[in-house]
Simulated scan of single mutants.
Amino acid sequence: MTAYEEALSRPATLELNSGRNTTSPGHVTQRLPFIVACLLVAGHSAFAMPCHFETQGEGRVTAIVDGRSVRLDDGREVRLAGIEPTATTKQALASLLVGRDVTLRSTDDTPDRYGRQGAFVFIGESDASVQATLLAQGEAIASAEIADKDCAAALMASEAQARRQKMGNWADPLAIKNAESPDDILAGIGRFMVVEGKVLSVRQAGATTYLNFGRNWTRGFAVTISRRALPAFESAGISLKALENKRILVRGWIEGNTGPRIDVRLLGQVELLGANEPTGVRP
């Protein structure tokens, strides 16, 4: 068991009833999210070489296809794993990668149904993936889709740093949507978003648990969690009912008709915010 896994398995790490913050002149140290908080316990050594999976090939980048896909000189199209693009990701990729020799690392080199090879991309002998670089610059959003916990935690830590420093995309106050403005969220249906808000109620209907952020359940923003996703939360010591009246960040694809929602399938999609952080803070 890694230090990260050990930290994640302890319910005390969540501190659901704690609102402690450390303050100093001109600066407020903000509480880190579920997955990133474990970094404080795990320490640097656990993440010395995150996302360094098996080498799945090398090549030179000749073109940027879109915000998370590049083309190599041998014709392969590579989809960058672990991130979702922002409006500036494609340009950032062009600056970083065009004409550069790269190494591809992943647990599997099987192409997806569109023929793209998913991988972490490393420039030359660099120990930092291109994904981590984009996240640290605020030029991408962590997708929370990576199963490897050490790699996922390292990506989330890179994003959290950029959020705290308001780098890149996070300099825009609208980069994180307000759960109290469901119409703004619904306008982004079909897009990947990060939403902040206070959970007003937790309800279960059949095999689905609902985290409701509005009193009007049909029009307000909500998070849905299916029964098959519950074991991940339970193994981390997280009681969904305990999230009532807590402020969280949630990330995912916006769905819905009358009211917007995000379907949470992975633990890393949910982050707990400190109780004393003022409403509207965008870490």
Rank of each mutant, 00 (worst) to 15 (best):
A136P: 01
A136Q: 07
A136M: 03
Q137A: 14
Q137Y: 03
G138P: 06
G138R: 05
E139R: 03
E139C: 03
A140F: 06
A140H: 02
I141T: 00
A142T: 01
A142S: 05
A142F: 07
A144C: 11
A144F: 01
E145K: 12
I146R: 03
I146V: 15
A147E: 04
A147Y: 04
A147M: 02
A147W: 06
D148G: 08
K149A: 08
D150I: 09
D150G: 12
C151T: 06
C151H: 05
C151S: 00
C151M: 08
A152G: 01
A154H: 04
M156Q: 04
M156L: 13
A157D: 03
A157F: 07
S158R: 09
S158W: 05
S158K: 05
S158E: 08
S158P: 07
E159L: 01
E159P: 01
A160T: 10
Q161S: 12
A162K: 07
A162Q: 09
R163G: 08
R163D: 12
R163F: 09
R163E: 12
Q165D: 13
K166Q: 15
M167D: 13
W170C: 12
W170E: 06
P173W: 11
P173S: 12
P173E: 13
L174R: 15
L174N: 15
A175H: 02
I176M: 07
I176P: 00
I176H: 07
K177G: 11
N178I: 07
N178W: 12
A179Q: 02
E180K: 11
S181T: 12
S181H: 10
P182T: 11
P182A: 01
P182D: 06
P182Y: 09
D183A: 09
D183P: 00
I185K: 01
I185N: 02
L186A: 14
L186C: 08
L186V: 09
A187S: 15
A187W: 10
G188I: 14
R191F: 11
R191A: 11
M193L: 05
E196P: 03
G197V: 08
K198E: 14
K198G: 06
K198I: 10
V199L: 12
V199P: 03
S201N: 14
R203H: 09
A205K: 10
A205C: 06
A207N: 13
A207C: 00
A207M: 02
T208A: 04
T209Y: 04
T209N: 04
L211A: 05
L211I: 06
N212E: 14
N212M: 11
F213W: 13
F213P: 00
G214D: 15
G214M: 09
R215C: 06
R215W: 05
R215E: 12
N216V: 09
W217V: 12
T218W: 04
R219M: 04
R219A: 07
